[in-house]
Nucleic acid binder design. Sequence first.
DNA 1: AATAGATTGGT
DNA 2: CCAATCTAT
Length: 464
Amino acid sequence: MNHSPPPVQLMWFRDDLRTADNPALTSALSAGPVIAVFILDEDSPGIRPLGGAAKWWLHQGLKSLQASLVELGIPLVLSKGSADEKIPALAKQTKAGAVHWNRRYGQPEREVDTQAKTALRDLGLEAHSYPGTLLHEPWELMTKNETGYKVFTPFYNALRDSTIRPPLPAPAAQDHVTESAIPSGLELEELELLPATMDWTAGLAERWEPGEVPARQRLEEVLESIAEDYPVHHDRPDLDGTSALSPALRWGHLGAHEMWDALGRLAAENPKAAEGATAMRRQLAWRDFCWHLYYHHPHLPERNLRAEFDHFDWAWPEDDPQTAGHVAAWQRGKTGFRLVDAGMQQLWQTGWMHNRVRMVAASLLVKNLQVHWKVGERWFWDTLVDADIACNTANWQWVAGSGADAAPYFRVFNPELQAKKFDPQGSYASRFAPVAAEPIVDLKQSRREALDAYEQMKLRGDAS
DNA sequence: AATAGATTGGT
DNA sequence: CCAATCTAT
């Protein structure tokens, strides 16, 4: 018998920094010895560069992934540049039999992946892509009119009633790949993901432990002690009431299928936690909904989904000094509304903000201050560790009222009332915004002005 | 994934 | 006088 050993398989990691429940990795391992690759791509056109907080998370996440992969005998090669060139080059260099990856759904990313696939095929190499990041491919759930969903509830009902594949088990270790077969890559530090000069990341490091193992630990904690109170506590920023798994889901340390499945089992096994588990599944579905919207509306980050909002007279910080002052105060958590200021401080310090507070803080910016949602979206993009392009832009458009299934414009949060309801003792406020600032707007008046501006927008729209 | 202001109906 | 309910935005 003269069996030649199977060729090396490249596993291209992107937004799926985990070993368990990873279809592309599982498939690669079944085909032959695996070399893993991560490419920091800041060169391909149209891909928005990561924000500062996200880069910090990615740095830690890659370190953690590398450790998990070592356990499996899989080397991780780091690289930087245009992925559609780097991937075929690495495949050629390693004489790989195939390259495996889990799909991405943004238009620029899909173009890169298609070009990589074409380049690989031209070299006579195989490329295999898998669904791994979302519960469903964005084109799988469609309305009866064969269009993408624009409204969350029908989308959720379809998702809930659909079959969602169970998570894949963690893979077994492989024999170590021969050292000489591993292409040389960059050191993690050479990706330059950490701040170059002033290190502002201490608060992030204190709050988070990026990686697959801590993410799974948190999921266990959520199932054991968060889910039961979730229906009441999820709106309470002063309590540990949410899953806080958004960054783990964003970077794929935790697979959405694993979480969906675990919540389903919890609901079946523990009647007291069933309601909370279902509510959490709804949140997970919201993430899929955002990507579904983005896939069917690739201009979501740039354009209002409701075109009538093109006629809204948004304020921009570069256009007038008052708006510049408003935006600066909002960013620094000096608006004078303690719930908002606490949220903005929490964001700045920890790279994350409680979702209830995100809505209130966003509402203040786009409604009371009439600042364009893109200004807030960009700030969140740079400061959130969980920022992803679909959820960030869809949710900002949701608050602004310009989204497909957005909050009606007249839904203006009153930050003082919201604080009374959801931070009743003010402990969240005093934790993150211990010093009260002077309010930068009159709530009553600015609310009226916002509603007037909306009426003006409609008049302008009718006239044109 | 609202709020303000008015109205109602109980004390 | 108040809390609950309705209604417009």
